Computed example of a mutant assay.
Amino acid sequence: MQDFLKYAKMNPFDRMRAGILKSMNLTEADLARMSPDQRAAVEQKIRDAIEKQLEKKGQQPGSLVDQSA
């Protein structure tokens, strides 16, 4: 139940990131344990995957930013 509530409270970007990490069989804790070079490589793969997902949906990078503030 707590996992569901945590997921439900995520913004769209965080949900995409979590899904991509899951597809890579990684967690945020796994990333934290990586060397800086390894983490940078994985973060780049995540960015690339998010950009591809946005392109498929016809959205521009940055369109998921909350601009209400």
Rank of each mutant, 00 (worst) to 15 (best):
A69S: 15
Q60P: 02
S68F: 08
R47W: 05
A32L: 10
K52I: 08
S23L: 11
V42R: 01
S68M: 07
P12R: 07
A40Q: 10
M10A: 07
Q44E: 11
D66N: 12
M16N: 02
A40E: 11
P12W: 03
K52S: 13
T27K: 04
K22A: 12
R39H: 06
D30F: 03
K6S: 10
P36F: 05
R17Y: 07
K56P: 02
V42Y: 00
A40S: 11
A41H: 11
A32W: 03
M34V: 05
G62W: 00
L21V: 04
G19H: 03
K45E: 10
T27E: 02
L26W: 00
S35M: 08
E28F: 09
A8D: 11
E51L: 13
G58C: 05
L5P: 02
Q67L: 15
L54F: 02
K6Q: 13
L5E: 14
I20R: 00
S68K: 09
L64T: 01
V65S: 10
D3I: 12
Q60L: 12
R15E: 07
I46Q: 01
F13A: 07
A8I: 08
A69P: 09
K6G: 06
M16S: 03
D37Q: 14
E55A: 15
K57P: 01
S63T: 05
Q53L: 11
K9H: 12
K45N: 09
E43T: 08
I20A: 00
A49M: 07
F4K: 15
M16Q: 05
M34S: 04
Y7P: 06
P36N: 06
A49V: 03
L5T: 09
G19L: 01
L54C: 03
D3M: 13
I20H: 00
N11P: 06
Q67C: 14
D37R: 13
A8L: 12
M24D: 02
A29N: 11
M24S: 03
S68Y: 07
L64G: 02
V42N: 01
R33L: 13
V42A: 04
T27N: 02
K9V: 08
P36A: 03
R15D: 04
E28K: 14
M1N: 14
N11K: 14
S23D: 15
K52M: 12
Q44F: 06
A40D: 10
N25P: 03
Q59A: 10
A40I: 05
A18H: 08
S23A: 15
L64Y: 00
F13K: 09
G58T: 04
F13M: 13
I20D: 00
Y7M: 12
I46N: 01
S68P: 04
D48V: 10
I20S: 00
P12K: 05
M1H: 14
A32V: 08
R15M: 09
K9L: 14
Q59M: 15
I20N: 00
A49L: 06
L54R: 01
S23K: 14
K9C: 09
E43M: 12
D66H: 04
E28A: 13
A40R: 09
S68C: 06
G58S: 04
E43Q: 14
D37Y: 10
M1C: 13
Q38H: 09
